[in-house]
Nucleic acid binder design. Structure first.
Length: 402
RNA sequence: GGGUCGAUGCCCGAGUGGUUAAUGGGGGCGGACUGUAAAUCCGCUGGCUUCGCCUACAGUGGUUCAAAUCCACUUCGGCCCA
């Protein structure tokens, strides 16, 4: 397992920082399978593309013969990672964490090879730790060092509460590295502080320190903030092909390059050539985005589904075509008040919300615009209800007799 | 433990007795423009079959014709002192 140039390029693709490159090269040069660590607290069972950046890197290590150790942070999750947070996290119950872990693994193994993965729970060691051991662990760091962290410092200076238990988290994560004898720990750039704890703790017990490999934080579909469930800007690995395609295709242009780099294997030299052509006006930006969307959808749903999604996307948005999969709702036969129909079909949050859509002129029933918020509509068979360009529902009369 | 300041709608943040469902910004949604992008512009953004009614400004009680605004207590938080 010598480190040829190609291997090195694969491993460092998209990587922001390696601490340190020299150590990583030395470890690789040993020619033995390395322990590649990833710690997760299974607080968000729905994995989105933001998480897959790191997972793909794990997979690349596996393909080179290394072993992934996935640490399910059943104990750390009850503490809550303060990384990048501006607020104290809610503390999860142990039962919640275990349930989430199962869902997590299912999605995790869509990318990472289960045959080359060992899954461990950090409760295995933390549950057995004595108070004295915890004290000794916490003695390894000072308050000033903790407050150097940007997120803690911002909260502290901004007058936001920081609970003392949050200081435990980085130390616990570091201790995980000691326990599993990690050679490399992967993480987003926001994990730097925690990963460095691992190095120090390993060193303090006379073990070879792990290498920290940091990947960029993927921005969400809004193009502004990191992809995160609470911000509602995610693309989930479990999203339906059409859904996934649409979100990728409507991505802000500025994200296309990073998505290609972090979420696909498209050779980087091809990519920069294409981007240059787009800038020069030789290629339409949408063409590149279509390629991106197809590539990623294919990874999760296969190339057939990706092609079909691309076709459907074009069909719907090039003209006034109506999507083929519209949610259907049954309502009773006869006269119906439009706002309540909108609520029933999930197109409006409340009757008032529905009224506002009508007043805003964005509601049609069988493609006829509704302008009066008091409007009644005759439901006699199958009808099309629509809000704006993209929100559809089919209304089906439910015969009173049946 | 003592002192002091604070808690407003999804978020930030005005408002300190009465045209107040509550200024403004962000976000979100709908529309125009466009490339299904960005930028810009316009509208909407508590509930109710709504020219009206109801519920809301941490919680509970009180003062008042009238409170998010005044008082008391409670809960939570910041800062200073220990």
């Amino acid at each position: 397992m010598s480190i040829d140039l190609k291997t090195w390029e694969t491993l460092t693709r998209g990587v922001t920082e390696i601490i340190s490159e020299a150590e990583l090269k030395a470890k690789l040069a040993k020619g033995k399978p390395l322990n590649i660590k990833l710690g997760v607290d299974p607080t968000a069972p729905d994995i989105h593309l933001g998480f897959t950046v790191v997972m793909r890197k794990l997979r690349q290590f596996q393909d080179l013969g290394h072993r992934v150790i996935l640490i399910v942070g059943d104990y750390t999750a009850t503490v809550g990672d303060p990384s990048g947070k501006s607020k104290t996290r809610r503390i999860l119950t142990h039962a919640e964490v275990l349930a989430n872990a199962e869902t997590y693994k299912q999605q995790f193994f869509k990318i990472v090879d289960p045959a080359k993965t060992e899954v461990v729970y950090n409760g295995d060691w933390f549950s057995k730790m004595t108070f004295t051991e915890v004290t000794n662990l916490m003695a390894q760091i000072t308050v000033a060092q903790m407050l150097e962290r940007e997120d803690f410092r911002n909260r502290y200076e901004g007058g936001q509460p920081i609970s003392l238990h949050e200081f435990l988290y980085p130390m616990m994560q570091g201790y995980d590295s000691v326990m599993i004898e990690a050679d490399v720990e992967l993480g987003g750039t926001d994990q730097k502080f925690n990963v460095l704890r691992g190095r120090e703790l390993q060193r303090s017990v006379g073990k070879e320190p792990q290498v920290g490999m940091f990947l960029p934080i993927l921005l969400g579909t809004d193009g502004r903030e990191k992809m995160s469930k609470s911000l509602g800007n995610t693309i989930g690995v479990n999203d339906a092909p059409q859904d996934m395609f649409h979100k990728l295709f409507t991505l802000p242009d500025a994200l296309v390059e990073s998505y290609f780099q972090l979420l696909t294997d498209v050779p980087l030299e091809n990519l920069s050539a294409k981007l240059a052509q787009v800038t020069a006006g030789e290629i339409h930006p949408n063409l590149l985005k279509e390629e991106l969307a197809k590539n990623i959808v294919a990874q999760y749903h296969g190339t057939d589904a990706a092609d079909a999604a691309a076709q459907e996307e074009k069909r719907i948005h090039s003209g006034q075509a109506i999507p083929s999969n519209i949610p259907e709702f049954q309502v009773s036969l006869g006269s119906q008040w439009v706002p309540s129909l909108l609520v029933l079909a999930g197109l409006a949050k409340s009757n008032g919300d529905g009224r506002r859509f009508i007043e805003g002129g964005s509601v049609t029933f069988d493609e006829v615009k509704i302008t009066d918020p008091k409007a009644q509509v005759e439901v006699t068979g199958t009808h099309l209800l629509r809000v704006g360009k993209r929100n559809f529902a089919r209304i089906i009369a439910l015969d009173a007799a049946s």
